[in-house]
Design a protein around this nucleic acid. Structure first.
Length: 374
DNA sequence: ATAATTTGACCCTT
DNA sequence: AAGGGTCAAATTAT
């Protein structure tokens, strides 16, 4: 018997892959059930009996619970980052999801709601597959103002320092402490908060915890969207140089910004308790409420419409950002975006460390979450 | 005790 | 002058 895939990363044993496959099947089953439920609701409206609904929900919950348990068991396995990104870029189109080998990372994403960001992000880059909502292109290069004016008095930095900015949107936690800033891969220290004219919610200012130690200039601003309490708009300013101390090359890595513009909208999670503010979440929320299941998930049950997939992840390999999947320019953008998300400016080869944490990587779990040693 | 957050004040840019 | 970004003392958390 030949090895199924000679190029498979050595980190993956066949057993792991099989187990992940099984787990994924569970998830897909859950999705299917949920989708069926959705369709039932759509078809029958409120004629549906509560017991049946309840039963369906239970089934779905059970399936996902089981899947999650397995994912948790796998959570510490290392993954080949490229596989994860590949999957993002080339979601399974065939009936089985056998090449989705990233359950552990999925788990992380699910845990933080980041998977939705990726989906959204991909869509943002690919208007053709928009879920019917409009895609908001945020002008990242609006270096006009709001940049890091950074105390010119105390340390003479100019606002015009071509500081690179990258705006993203991230879902706020839907339960628990919704005030937690979105979790990214770095340790941030809050140094200010301000009411912004015309904005409902204050803007919080963070800088890299290691600013002093490594003279790391990275900063970020976090603010809730006016019309969407559950979505943060995060603006990253500057690159992390503190990564040099660990895995990154000695050269500051590409900033978390793509070309001149980057769009990462996060919306799928932001539906729940939103007031019907007009078209709710206006441009930021893309998902038509109530039918997220119907969107991009090409469930095993065929019918997976979605023409974009394909790509077969080619022999991909390579790091997510390294090879452009030579397929579509769009994909290269997506790859970059994925890189950005995972990485915010660390070494490309280790860009997914936070999703595939190394054994040495400690994850501090302090209040504000997002922690990673630079 | 140390580290992180809060918050009013300061200062720069527009 | 207004608005935004940062500092730093005070406060709170670990």
């Amino acid at each position: 018997m030949l090895k199924s895939n000679p190029k498979a990363t050595p980190k993956h044993t066949m057993d792991q892959q099989q187990q992940q496959h099984t787990t994924l099947s569970l998830i897909l089953d859950g999705c299917k059930l949920a989708k069926e439920l959705e369709e039932s609701i759509g078809n029958l409206g409120n004629q549906l009996q509560p017991e049946i609904l309840s039963k369906s929900c239970d089934d779905i919950i059970n399936i996902f619970a089981t899947a999650k348990q397995r994912l948790n068991n796998n959570a510490h396995h290392h993954q080949d980052p490229s596989l994860f990104t590949q999957h993002l870029l080339h979601p399974p189109q065939d009936s089985s999801a056998h090449h989705m080998q990233t359950d552990p990372s999925l788990q992380e994403w699910l845990k933080y709601g980041v998977i939705t960001q990726a989906m959204d992000m991909i869509q943002s880059c690919r208007p053709s597959i928009s879920m019917g909502g409009e895609i908001q292109a945020m002008d990242v290069s609006d270096s006009g103002k709001a940049a890091s004016s950074s105390s010119s008095q105390r340390s003479h930095r100019s606002r015009k320092d071509d500081e690179e900015k990258c705006k993203t949107r991230v879902a706020a936690p839907q339960m628990g402490n919704t005030d937690l800033p979105p979790d990214d891969n770095y340790t941030w220290r809050k140094y200010g908060q301000k009411e912004i004219l015309g904005s409902k919610y204050p803007r919080a200012y963070y800088r890299c915890t290691h600013q002093k130690m490594y003279n790391c200039p990275a900063k970020k601003q976090v603010q809730r969207l006016d019309n969407d309490f559950y979505t943060f708009e995060v603006t990253y300013i500057g690159q992390h140089t503190c990564t040099m101390s660990s895995t990154a090359p000695s050269i500051p890595q590409p900033p978390p910004v793509l070309h001149d513009q980057m769009v990462m909208t996060q919306a799928m999670v932001s539906q729940p308790a939103l007031p019907p503010t007009s078209s709710s979440t206006t441009s930021s929320s893309i998902v038509p409420s109530g039918s997220w299941l119907s969107m991009e998930f090409s469930l095993g049950s065929g019918s997976g419409g979605r023409g974009s997939g394909g790509a077969g992840s080619s022999s991909g390999g390579g790091s997510a950002t390294g090879s452009r999947y030579g397929r579509d320019v769009e994909y290269s953008v997506v790859a970059d975006m994925a890189d950005v998300m995972f990485n915010s400016g660390s070494s490309s080869s280790n860009s997914m460390d936070f999703i595939f944490p190394c054994a040495e990587d400690k994850w501090e779990a302090h209040g504000s979450g997002d922690k990673k040693h630079c």
